[in-house]
Computed example of a mutant assay.
Amino acid sequence: MQGSERSRVAVTGSTGLIGSALVRSLRTDGHEVVRLVRRPAGAADEVEWDPHRQHVDVAGLAGCDAIVHLAGAGIGDRRWTDAYRKEIRDSRVLGTAAIAEAAASMDPPPRVLVSGSAVGYYGDTGDRAVDEDAPPGDGFLPDVCVEWEEAAAPAQEAGVRTVFSRTGLVVARKGGAWGRMFPVFRAGLGGRLGDGRQYWSFIALHDEVAALRHLIDAESLSGPVNLTAPEPVTNGEATAAMGRVLHRPTLFNVPAPVLRGVLGEMSENVLTGQRVLPARLLESGFSFAFPTIDEAIRAALR
């Protein structure tokens, strides 16, 4: 996909924060994008799939050089009832299994499957820095991430280079956790969550898209790759940076018991943290455009 070579790329989750930005980036550079949709295909660039039925219209993927699989129910979209925990898991595990089986059945198969994952794989690391060699943590999200990545086995066994993009918190003005924070901080109501000492491994949306495209191109990369900026920050440091960039006070803080009361079990997702380093991404020659938290926030506001 480097230079003037035109590729055909299939993308799931193409209406989400990351997927829509990736589709725009690829099309701007002249690549053909096929979007997988969970309804009958209604446009020339659409292919139908149903993760829960394990169905993919494989014929529609013919000629695809790469598949980027980003679909999954939002972690922070709803309170974690038993039913929603099942939706979080099934949307990732069943969806990945369906895409991996489809990739394995293609003739010829795609060169690469970039399959979404998350830094939640590592669990709560405290202030301990971890890279891709670290084992999974304990709890619901680490367990989901392990199953999520294991579900790609059919593609790996078929010889498709498979990369797991373990993404951190994406800093973007609209969408995702950061998109919900910007209005609060702009109103001068932002502040630390809990004690603020939990690490947040972030990445600017621009760098997330560039890193995904790097994973498509970098033939040397397979397995897990952390998509996080090289300098993770604590929640307290991220709060201070939001105040600096937006020129707003950050006097408020939400105590942990209040968060637990409002969010239930999902509160652990913001009260615990991961100090994750992008070791393999940097080793492979990737360069961040917005490596610091201040730069990432400013980039989101542009």
Rank of each mutant, 00 (worst) to 15 (best):
R180G: 07
R192A: 15
E208S: 04
A210F: 06
G188N: 12
T239E: 01
V225K: 03
A187G: 09
R186D: 14
A204W: 00
D217L: 14
L193D: 05
G190P: 08
P232N: 13
W178P: 00
E208C: 13
P230K: 03
F185G: 00
P232D: 08
G196D: 04
N226V: 01
I216K: 03
G236E: 04
L227P: 12
L193W: 08
P183F: 10
H206Q: 11
P230T: 03
A240Q: 15
P183M: 10
R197V: 06
T234P: 03
I203H: 01
N235D: 12
I216T: 09
S201N: 10
R180I: 00
L221F: 14
F185Q: 02
L193C: 02
Y199G: 11
A211I: 06
A240R: 15
E231Q: 15
L189C: 12
T228A: 11
G194A: 04
G191Q: 07
T239F: 01
R197E: 11
S201E: 01
I216Y: 05
A204F: 00
W200H: 00
S222K: 12
I203R: 01
A238C: 06
D207H: 05
H206Y: 13
R213A: 04
W200L: 12
P230Q: 09
M181W: 11
L205C: 10
I216N: 08
L215N: 13
L221T: 13
W178G: 00
V233C: 09
M242F: 15
L227W: 11
A210N: 11
G191D: 06
A241I: 02
G190F: 05
V225T: 05
H206N: 06
G243N: 05
A187H: 03
F185L: 02
P230D: 02
F182K: 08
A238M: 15
A240E: 13
S222Q: 15
A211E: 09
V233E: 08
V209A: 10
I203S: 03
V209N: 13
R197L: 08
L227F: 09
I216M: 15
A229E: 09
I203K: 03
L215T: 11
V233T: 10
G196V: 02
G188R: 07
G179F: 00
V225N: 03
D207P: 08
R197P: 00
R197S: 14
P224M: 14
R213G: 04
Y199E: 09
G179T: 01
F202A: 06
R197D: 11
R197Y: 00
W178S: 09
E219L: 08
I203W: 01
A229R: 11
W178Q: 00
T228L: 00
A229T: 12
L205K: 04
Q198P: 04
D207S: 07
R186P: 06
T234E: 04
N226A: 01
R192D: 14
R213I: 01
Q198G: 07
W200Q: 02
W200A: 00
M181H: 01
E231Y: 14
